[in-house]
Every structure is written in C-alpha cells, then in structure tokens.
Amino acid sequence: MESLIYAVLSMGGIGLFFAVLITLANAKLKVEEDPKIELVNDLLPGANCGACGLPGCGACAELMVKGEVGLSACPVADDDSKDQIGKLLGLSHEAGEKDVAVVLCQGGLKNVSIKADYDGVKTCLGSTLVSGGERQCAYGCLGNGDCCVVCSFDAIHMGEDGLPIVDREKCTGCGKCAEVCPRDIIEMHKESHQVFVLCKNQDKGKAAKEACKVVCIGCQICVKKDESGGFTVKNFLASVDHSKYGSNPELPTDKCPTNAIVNVVRASE
C-alpha cells in the first residue's frame, strides 16, 4: 500500500514538474504569428517552387503580409487568387498576362546530327561538361531533361524526339526551366506571343546546316519579307522583337527556307 502511494506521488510530482517547465517554456518561446500569414499562404500556389526567390510559399506569404514584397513577387499565382490576397492585405494589383516557357530549339533526334555517344551522368549539366554532349549543335538542346526534372508543375516533358515539350496550359511562368537550362534555350515569353525563331545557332550557314536540319542560317529572308520590322539578324541568327512584331499569328514562317520560324501554338496543335 505504501509503495502505491509513493508511486502515485512521485510520478505525479515528476509529471507536474515537467508540466510547469513546459508551460513556462511555452510562454517564453512562443512564436507570434500574424493570422494573415496563414490565410495568404493558403491562397498562394503552395508548390514551393522558389520562383519568387524565397525559400518557399510560407516565406513569401510572410513578406507579403509585412509589405516587404508586392503581389507581383509570385509569378505563379493566377489573377483570381492574387485578387483575393489583395483584398486581404488592402493591396491592388494589375491583372497581367502570364508568361510561358518557350523552347527555342528544334534539334530533336530526327533533325540534329549526332557527333558522339554519351554514356555519362544523365543530366544536361553533366553532358555540357563532357565536351557538349552527343549532339553536333553547340547551341541547342542537350536532351537530358534537366528542365523536366526541375518543373514543380508537371508542365514540361521530354518528347519522343529528345526535345522538351511545354504544356502551355499547365505552365505557370515560374522560369525555373529557363534558369536550369545550361544552353539557355528556354526563354519566358508572354502567352500571346506565338511566333518565334526556334533556333539559337550562331554558326555560319554551311556549318549550321551540317549540325542540324532545322536551323537558322541567317539568310535575312524573314527581315525582308516582314513589314513590321520585328525580325533582325545578328551573328547569323534571326530573332523576333515582339514589341514590334506584336502578336500577329500570321507569320513569314512559310518563307523561311529551313522552317526555323514557327508559330508554337499552331505547331503543337
């Protein structure tokens, strides 16, 4: 009987001691959180993609509530949720058009020449370090899909041809794939911009043609045929200035002798 009382008392005592200790610690170490942070965090995409440059959606929500970053910090959230966050925090935001990733290369396996057999680490970064991978073109896609791995939104996939294909619906414009591409062939463009020179090759015509079938050889035909003045050729490579060319989907693609100029929306249809 005696040991029973001792058992109850000692266990109760130890329990009480720790209860008091934890209560005190809780009061001392309590983390004050603005309830708005939680609400904003729920409205953000929650993919923790890092496109805002912060460690995750939680960190972005915290800075938004503090007013250190604006609504535009998150390139991923759609207009609807940005409106809601704006109402919550008393901020306004301008509805903008989303950006979409564009892969500026058509050097898939059926177009590009193969110069070597690469059997190393299966990443683009790895193959650039080993004399530029297995494809002849020194400017184009390496085909190991670093962009597909980095995408948090399942919006870019490696096609059968060894070229990444962007799902323009799913793409949120976070720009992660453009950042990770060691050849810089992925660029972010407004969704309404549809006409692109899908090539980055700056070699002269003959060398370029040897590397890839669908390549810009700098022939200037697009510059002459397009009246808007949106096309320019520099270093044997044409490029489109969308501020001049606008979003006209009727394009001089038919005129391009190598088919390097493409309407990306139509091409995917």
């Binding site: 040991s3 001792y6 058992a7 000692s10 266990m11 130890i14 329990g15 720790f18």
Partner: peptide, 14 residues
C-alpha cells in the same frame, strides 16, 4: 522509494 518498476514510465515522461 523502491520504485524501480516504474523506470520505463518515468523515462518516457522525461
């Protein structure tokens, strides 16, 4: 207190 049989319980608590 001769309560060694309580060691597991008290250790869990700690």
């Amino acid at each position: 207190l001769n309560l060694q049989f309580l060691q597991i319980v008290s250790f869990i608590l700690v």
